[in-house]
């Protein structure tokens, strides 16, 4: 009665695990984004938020297989995520310089736009940290999952460079 014999070619994760991942995923993704957006309020908020977003993707990858998830989540999208994170980070920093402050001196915003200190922080937290962390977690995972074949090396080192900016 053992029915595993012919399933060898298509090992799928147990239905139980798969379904619970399906159920949990939207909640964790929402929660991750919530934490990223409220990162300025709590210690380390955005870092954790980004980590949760990344982990949600990894969870889906475990349940549905890595290849389908990789296809679902385009490689360029993930790289774009990290790049956008870095761009926002640097952009905010340079904007403060342009407004006559130091790098990431949020007070410049307060004087120029009349908005609170909080929003500069928010931009850095959401854009800078959360996107980068999520992107790096996902990228590292997929890079590891792909194995260290010589032809994959170029791409990995490129991604590593991007993440070094953080």
């Amino acid at each position: 009665m053992s029915r595993t014999d012919t399933y060898d070619d298509t090992y799928t994760e147990s239905q139980v695990i798969m379904t619970s991942v399906r159920i949990i995923a939207p909640f964790t993704l929402t929660y991750g984004m919530f934490m990223s957006l409220h990162g300025a309020d709590t210690p380390g908020g955005s870092f954790q938020g980004g980590a949760i977003i990344g982990v949600t993707v990894l969870m889906l990858a475990f349940a549905f297989g890595i290849e389908p998830t990789r296809r679902w989540l385009k490689n360029s999208f993930v790289v774009g995520l990290v790049t956008a994170g870095v761009a926002i980070f640097i952009g905010t920093g340079l904007a403060t310089i342009a407004l006559g402050g130091n790098f990431l001196e949020y007070d410049a915003f307060v004087e120029t736009f009349g908005i609170a200190h909080y929003w500069g922080m928010e931009a850095i937290e959401v854009g800078g940290v959360a996107l980068i962390v999520a992107g790096v977690v996902i990228t590292l995972f997929f890079a590891t999952a792909a194995g260290f074949t010589p032809d994959g090396r170029g791409e990995e080192s490129y991604q590593a460079e991007v993440t070094d900016d953080d």
Binding site: S14, V16, I17, S20, I23, I24
Partner: peptide, 16 residues
């Protein structure tokens, strides 16, 4: 809630 959903799933994964 999270613990109640994930713990049995994790146990199932390990047993499996």
């Amino acid at each position: 809630f999270f613990v109640f959903i994930t713990n049995p799933t994790a146990a199932h994964a390990i047993a499996r």
